[in-house]
Amino acid sequence: MVGPPKVINKRVNDKLLEPFEVATVEVPENHMGPVVELLGRRRGQMFDMQGVGSEGTVFLRYKIPTRGLLGLRNAILTASRGTAILNTVFDSYGPWAGDISTRDLGSLVAFEDGSSTSYALASSQERGQMFVGAGVDVYKGQIVGIHQRPGDLGLNICKKKAATNIRSNKDVTVVLDTPLTYSLDDCIEYIEEDELVEVTPLSIRMCKNPKMAKKGR
Rank of each mutant, 00 (worst) to 15 (best):
K208V: 07
V22Q: 13
T102A: 12
E18Q: 14
V2N: 11
I100K: 03
R127W: 09
K211E: 15
L72V: 01
M130H: 08
A134Q: 07
K10W: 11
E126C: 07
W96A: 04
V12S: 07
Q45A: 12
K160F: 08
Y93F: 15
D152H: 13
L176G: 11
Y62P: 00
K140N: 08
L196S: 04
R73T: 08
D104S: 14
E126P: 01
P179I: 00
F47D: 14
S92V: 07
Y190V: 05
V27M: 10
A163R: 14
F20I: 02
T117E: 11
L77T: 03
G51A: 03
M130I: 03
A122W: 13
K208G: 01
V174A: 11
G128K: 00
M32D: 01
K159W: 14
P201N: 14
T117R: 04
G135R: 08
P34T: 02
L38W: 05
N169F: 10
R11M: 15
I143K: 00
G53Q: 09
I100R: 07
G106A: 13
S107Y: 14
T83R: 11
T66S: 15
V175W: 05
L108C: 06
S116E: 03
T88R: 07
Q45G: 01
A84K: 00
R167D: 09
V52A: 09
P19K: 11
F111W: 15
E193S: 11
R149T: 03
L121S: 01
L184N: 00
A23F: 01
R217T: 09
Q50C: 04
I8P: 02
V22I: 15
V25E: 02
A110F: 05
M206K: 06
V52M: 12
N30M: 08
